[in-house]
Amino acid sequence: MSTQTQTETTTSETGVARLRALWNDYLPYWFIAPMVLVMVLITFFPGAYDLYLSVIEEPTFDVFAAEFVGLNNYATAFGRGGAMHSFIITVTVVVSALALETVLGFGLAALVAGVESERLQSFYRVLFIIPMAVAPVSLATIGRIMLNSEIGVIPYLIEATTPFAAPAFLSEIPLLTVVLLDTWNWTPFMFIIFYAGLSSVPDTLIEASRVDGAPLWRRYLHVVIPYMKPVVFVATLIRLIDLFRTFGVVYGLTQGGPGTATQLVSINIYEQMFINNSPGVAAAIAVVYLVFVVAIANIVIAKVGFEGVWD
């Protein structure tokens, strides 16, 4: 009996030892396993499913029963679907909004950082951040009311203070209006990051350039902006990727219209899916868009690089 017990113990001990060896040998993999699992579930699986949707006629209950249509959906997307037009609209909006937000954000940050009174500074800080805290659709609704040619405050102000007639923002210059609304919404993001970046520029560096006799704009050009290069880069990269995802503020303002004048890729995808009931076409545009945005982000990182980080 004692022999038997001993054998059992030995067996289970061997089992434990084997498990322990397995645990120890692959220790790093065990540690990253949960993360990998989560990544697969939230990124890889939806991506793969999107790819699958883009090459079938329409989704069926049994995934293997769906009709394979090759690149038909892609052809439809770039034919009748107007995907190319949406890409051009999107790039236009992204580039102009990014430029405006970067310049305005930096300008505001520099102005507020230059305010001497601490109390006024924190007041401006809060004031300039508010638009970012408003939900995109609410902001779009507020925008619609403010821009309305009958009751809107902006057309009223333009006509009251300038000799020009106010344009019909949503029908005559819809693309510009969309860019301006997004700028209103997201300049605070750039402002707050640049503001933080500006306060990291050492005072003595500014003082050294003052003693060297550099006027204000040269101080910014030669000393402050080069020092802040990493901050500017990260802020614009985040904003760039985020701008490609813009949906709510534009959809709330124009629904992509008039016609397809402001139909961003995101709006096109939404309409293919929920208005045209063409999940295949929507998925096809989404796949191309994903590749497009990832490629742009990588090109930007490769070209500009994260260099310029000084100790």
């Binding site: 003595t204 560096l205 050294a208 000393v223 290069k229």
Partner: peptide, 15 residues
Amino acid sequence: DIAMVFQNYALYPNM
């Protein structure tokens, strides 16, 4: 018309 030397040197790191 002065020139100053700072404690932490304040050299422009990008130049």
